[in-house]
């Protein structure tokens, strides 16, 4: 569960802990069971989740408490999911939210 791109590391999840596999942008990621999608992605990626609808610049979670809507991702085909509120599950397919139009 180590990724060079990530700016975060899992501090307390040993080998004994249960993990699940999540597909993010086509890549398999192994993450601790029960974490939020936001945590899973921050632990695995260079941290951009979506783009601003107005200008298309990269955005990532700001508040991590359901307020800012900057962590929107597509989960199993459903868009606009707040990654900071959704827990991961085995086989979950997560994509960066693309700008419409």
């Amino acid at each position: 569960m180590v990724n060079q791109n990530s700016r975060f590391s899992w501090s307390d999840t040993g080998a004994a802990d249960k993990t699940v596999n999540v597909i993010f942008e086509g890549q398999n990621c192994t993450v601790p069971e029960g974490v939020t999608v936001a945590a899973a992605l921050l632990g695995h990626d260079d941290n951009h989740f979506c783009h601003s609808a107005a200008q298309g610049d990269k955005r990532a979670p700001y508040c991590l408490m359901g307020v800012c809507f900057e962590c929107l991702v597509e989960i199993d085909g459903l868009k606009n999911r707040q990654a900071c509120l959704e827990p991961v599950y085995e086989g979950m397919n997560v994509k960066r939210q693309q700008v419409e139009g």
Partner: peptide, 11 residues
């Protein structure tokens, strides 16, 4: 919140 959720820490 991130730490409480997942134990993630900036590296």
């Amino acid at each position: 919140n991130l730490f409480k959720d997942s134990g993630l820490v900036p590296k």
